[in-house]
Design a protein around this nucleic acid. Structure first.
Lengths: 231, 231
DNA sequence: CGTTTGAGTTAACATATGTGTACTGTGCCA
DNA sequence: TGGCACAGTACACATATGTTAACTCAAACG
């Protein structure tokens, strides 16, 4: 018995990571290891896809026993759904904010891209997770992400009403445009998390120009949804 | 011993799937089980992501023993890379063809979308695989897909030279546009494999309109890459 | 201050995985 | 026709997984 069972409990093994049990209430502690689990999952998810990482890996990374996992989540899937929520938590509000103050419509584009870029930078792991699982292997997670993306699209479609030309379109057509824009932005986020940090600026600039091109198309769009373009 | 070991070899268990060993040469047979492995993998990949399916699952589905796998591929990864090749095999040629005959430029759009939709329909499993693994968990596969997408983009950028307005742009700007278009198309394919077959037409129509909007933007684009849109 | 609660532990289970080694038996070629 | 190549098999291995059951022991509560 080289290491006698003299450490028969040691709670908050690494989970707390800040300080020991001192001056932390019981539920504060629980919340802390819950966060540790989420962050551990996120770290593993930057290398592997969701349905290939195991419950045991996550707990190992978080510094707790496999069985303790069940104190926090029923399932790995449940943890994944929380990650989806987290990922879209702040983004939606920030994007809407970037679109308000419609002083100069031109700048709305640049600001939206800036917000997205900033969000990708500060929530890189989350966004990589979203990009990876958007069409990934776990049905419920795919659905959850689709729902969130849909919300963003719907909001954008509504906000587009204040734009000069587009504002006169029907909601259907504005949704079409919103869909195009959101799709582009998701693509940008996906490209960015795969790119080197040094390339972020280039990706951002490219997508800004593409967004601008779309807006030119919108400004010159006519004759409704079946309008022929005037090549 | 209810089932005595009286079946001590039985090659082509299910792999052949057509007929028994009769009238099939040795290497024809090998090719057949190779195909069986690829198709089995593809079937599993419609439900799970690549790095979560196991070698054993694939062989089980194909009707051979796990160890026989190594007669065909070194690795699951190698099998994955073959799937990437297969997925882009016919698509690229068909797309280029759809863009040739630039009689009426307007129709090029509709025809391109048609080709894509047809390809998605006839290669649904492959396209789902691509959509799923484009940002998926396995590095080398991601890279391989990126390379293929890049080729498609480059080809499109070149072909855009024959269009009336866009043709006068520099290659850089044409690549920007090509990139936008390809990104949209990949998104369409991804949406389509997730959608019910009944919705295919709607998705196709939506994307065609979006593509048209982009072309309107291109037609009215001016003052180079920093041009301000004329809202 | 004694009791209860519950986050975390250890131990054990049935089952799954990738891969090595040794085999078998048939299609093919000399 | 005899022998070899080799696609496929059987068996074994170390290791990994999800989950159950019974526990410990400190914080929170009466």
């Amino acid at each position: 018995m080289p290491a006698p069972r003299s450490r028969p409990h040691n709670p908050h093994g690494r989970a707390g990571a800040r300080r020991d049990s001192q001056e932390l209430s019981r539920e504060e502690h629980k919340e802390l290891t819950r966060q540790a689990l989420l962050r551990s999952a996120l770290r593993l998810l930057s290398r592997n896809s969701f349905d290939s990482i195991s419950l045991r890996e996550v707990t190992r990374e978080a510094g707790i026993t496999p069985t303790a996992f069940y104190r926090h989540f029923d399932d790995m899937e449940e943890l994944g759904l929380v990650l989806v929520e987290e990922s879209f938590g702040s983004l939606r509000g920030m994007l809407r904010e970037a679109r308000s103050n419609p002083d100069i419509f031109n700048d709305v584009i640049r600001r939206s891209v800036e917000v997205l870029v900033a969000h990708v930078r500060s929530h890189e792991a989350h966004m990589r997770f979203i990009a990876r699982e958007r069409h990934g292997g776990v049905r419920r997670i795919r659905r959850a992400i689709a729902r969130e993306v849909d919300l963003v699209t719907t909001e954008l479609a509504l906000d587009l009403a204040v734009f000069p030309v587009v504002g006169k379109w029907g909601i259907e057509d504005r949704r079409l445009l919103a869909d195009l824009i959101v799709e582009l932005m998701v693509g940008v986020a996906a490209d960015m998390v795969d790119a080197e940090p040094g390339e972020h600026a280039a990706v951002a600039q490219r997508s800004e120009r593409q967004l601008r091109l779309i807006m030119v198309g919108a400004a010159n769009w006519r004759a409704g949804y079946l309008g022929r373009d005037r090549q």
